[in-house]
């Protein structure tokens, strides 16, 4: 039986490895060359920024950052955590890193330290100190039970006991005034995992107090996050790496001496890859439409 031939037959027979090569080039070239495009401004990122701007730097309240992401979230969640941490550090608002996800452990320490090293290079006269400006509370097991324990505790020092380095809560100047959930002025939750934000929203509150929530999610969990943003259960949002890149624009305007971070570059790289995916979808459909049209227009060949 002879095989019927189509005008754009090669599209159907395109080797998977060629697609992979194009993806590697689309992602890699912007990252290697440093090519970047100005990100889209997002109202959700602006809302996140405004929440941090609203905070007072009198050090009587703490910002709690739950970084529930691991190596799989490095591309999107890491830039989000970095820009949020940078904003807090620049405004001298004390914050604590915590996580309910074991794989996040190395990043709870490395992200703030790397951001501090970068901004100390930009502003050599300024210093940020562990225990005074920030603290790492480490990975805490038992998900929602731990969250519930934090919310209900009358003395967080007793529940937390020590930080990730074994330092007692009483020895950390930053934690001196932090005793209950009421001392948390803002809660930042960053994750790419489905359901983690739900747990924090459900359990990190008491009958009469709930800190404002802001959230960072990966691109695939944006629809879930919008649920909570639309109902004002979260009051600021990073929509994937695009949200972090948009936040960088806001940081650049607020701190004119700031050197660009990685979010804009990552966003450009992912955007080029997304353009490629659009192109591939269109090409795939063109191939399939050509086959359909050819079948319609050409009379069927007799069986040999």
């Amino acid at each position: 039986m002879s095989q019927r031939r189509y005008a754009l037959d090669f599209l159907d027979r395109l080797d998977q490895r060629i697609i992979y090569l194009f993806v590697a080039l689309a992602v890699g070239i912007p990252l290697i060359s440093g090519y970047s495009l100005p990100p889209t401004r997002m109202s959700t990122a602006q809302a996140f920024f405004d929440q941090i701007e609203k905070l007072s730097s009198t050090k009587d309240k703490l910002v709690l950052i739950s970084a529930d992401w691991g190596p799989g979230g490095v591309a999107e969640n890491r830039p989000q955590t970095e820009v949020a941490v940078e904003h807090l550090l620049r405004r001298r608002i004390p914050f604590a890193m915590i996580s309910t996800y074991a794989l996040a452990t190395p990043f709870l320490e490395s992200v703030p330290r790397e951001v501090i090293a970068r901004i100390e290079l930009e502003e050599p006269q300024q210093k940020w100190t562990y225990g005074v400006d920030w603290v790492n509370l480490g990975y805490r097991p038992n998900g929602f039970l731990m969250i519930q324990g934090l919310a209900k505790s009358q003395d967080l020092h007793k529940v937390l006991e020590v930080d990730a380095n074994g330092l007692q809560m009483g020895d950390i100047p930053l934690m001196a005034k932090v005793r209950t959930i009421r001392d948390v002025g803002l809660f930042i939750q960053i994750t790419g995992l489905v359901g983690v934000l739900n747990s924090w929203i459900q359990y990190f509150q008491t009958q009469d107090y709930r800190p404002p929530f802001v959230h960072g999610c990966t691109s695939i969990t944006i629809p879930e996050a919008y649920n909570f943003f639309a109902s004002s259960q979260i009051v600021g949002l990073f929509e994937g790496v695009a949200g972090a890149a948009s936040y960088e624009l806001l940081l650049n305007s607020a701190f004119p001496n700031r050197k660009p971070g990685e979010a804009v570059r990552n966003n450009t790289s992912i955007a080029v890859a997304q353009m490629l995916i659009i192109a591939l979808i269109i090409l795939g459909n063109v191939g399939s439409m050509t086959r359909w049209l050819t079948d319609r227009l050409r009379p069927s060949e007799p069986l040999s």
Partner: peptide, 9 residues
């Protein structure tokens, strides 16, 4: 997708 990436706007 186009609304989120820089090239769209």
């Amino acid at each position: 997708i186009l609304g989120q990436i820089p090239q769209g706007a």
